[in-house]
Design a protein around this nucleic acid. Structure first.
Lengths: 246, 246
DNA sequence: AGGCGAACACAACAAATGTTAAGATATGCG
DNA sequence: CGCATATCTTAACATTTGTTGTGTTCGCCT
């Protein structure tokens, strides 16, 4: 396994925090000095299981994860998609249990940081606590937007919205090049994120392709018509709070 | 307007916090000593508007409110239903803007408490901050459960789940008597909460009535067959964290 | 009491989405 | 390289949900 520097671990998070919360450099340096444990996960491996009570928070250093819930009849719903720089179980800093699964979509590298270390740091540097606090609030705002997406938008528009949201978040960490970027979900998983079947996802993807809006092949999205995409997605990025508030 | 004592304002919140977070009585007493402004809203009146930056948090003392978002084509989605004792914009303590509307479903009495007063109190009594922190985390967990509800459950099961969730929350504040309780939504609004039309909501309600599961008349729910309801809702209340964690 | 508007009820038909099944294409592995 | 498996693609048909329209009921106001 190739060598990983602390820099590579923290870079996406710092890039995001600087853009969204106007982070203080000394807070970030203090964060980067924290001890962490790297763990690698393979595609489809479970990182956190519903009901667990983790003693660490994890930072996605590389790869994609999803939160997901499975109901009694076996149907699953993806609740959110997480990319490098995300802290998908920050809530466990103040709340014991996770109430969903966290699953690696692709091969992933995660850095685990002990709650104790984080809490100590927050005690010394309240700015770090504030950043994290805001981060969980953005997370909640994203969940609310997903309710709207699944509840009200047509599947055609819904997929457009999902893709634009991911693109904006990927752009923040420099993962969008020439209107092309990775969202390593299968069509079945796109369906689980939208609350429809894989067959229907396939139908909608074909329409988007035929209409010249976008193409998706094996987890790589290519935008063909930016204007049309915007029109379909009706994306209002305020909920992501992409710029620091006054 | 009849006289309202401070006790009546705080009682539902305290009842809930005692059950869910094992609140310290001195923390609650300190809360009850905070100055607040009472405001009354009529049915369908907007309490907070998308994009606003409130300087106060509100506590629902009496009545029901919903969070709701409207998309470009005019369709609306209800994001959550709030009952007496809820603090629906606690997030604004640490985050400036609201990204949805807050609307009174019925005639409502809300107590507004200045951020400054709350922050001062949290500084003096960290336990209060912890309680609030947990409260927003439960709020986020409810949002995630709604994604599952709208995305994966059949409308029939979805309505059962929605009603059981509300019942459990209403039970906490003593508003369930003899399997009967108020959820003052119109059928159209139940539809907006579930992501379906009012016509379809009506169909599903008829089925539930014919099947002897429950009855809904003008915002009053009566459970007819508890066992069947449970079976349909597949309700796992862990996400509400109804009992204090260890 | 009468009238008005909102909410409810229900039916007929249209559109969206699920189900099942089959073949095609890609990917990993021996 | 060739097999084995997962993913993608598509079609036909079933089911769910939306749309439109028309009465009916209820609560409120005068």
């Amino acid at each position: 396994m190739r060598d990983v520097t602390s820099d590579m671990i923290w870079a996406p998070l710092f890039q995001r925090l600087k853009t969204t919360t106007g982070a203080d450099d000394r807070d970030l340096q203090a964060l980067a000095a924290l001890p962490f444990t790297l763990r690698h996960y393979r595609e489809n491996q479970t990182v956190l299981r519903d009901g667990e009570e983790p003693s660490e928070c994890c930072l996605i250093a590389d790869g994609f994860c999803v939160r997901s819930k499975t109901i009694a009849d076996g149907r699953g719903q993806i609740l959110s998609i997480h990319i490098p720089g995300d802290l998908p179980n920050l809530q466990n800093l103040h709340f014991p249990t996770v109430d969903h699964d966290l699953i690696a979509l692709s091969d992933c590298t995660l850095a685990f940081i002990a709650h104790k270390a984080l809490n100590d740091l927050i005690g010394r540097r309240p700015g770090v606590g504030d950043m994290f606090w805001r981060d969980t609030l953005v997370d909640a705002a994203v969940s609310r937007e997903w309710i709207v997406n699944v509840g009200q938008r047509s599947t055609y528009n819904r997929l457009a919205h999902l893709i634009v949201e991911l693109r904006e978040r990927l752009r923040l960490i420099g993962r969008v090049i020439d209107n092309t970027f990775a969202i390593p979900l299968t069509q079945e998983q796109f369906g689980e994120a939208m609350g429809v079947t894989s067959v229907h996802t396939n139908r909608i993807l074909r329409e988007l392709r035929i209409d010249g809006v976008l193409e998706l092949q094996r987890g790589t999205v290519r935008i063909l018509n930016e204007h049309k995409l915007q029109e379909l997605a009706q994306f209002d990025g305020r909920y992501l709070h992409l710029s620091p508030s006054p």
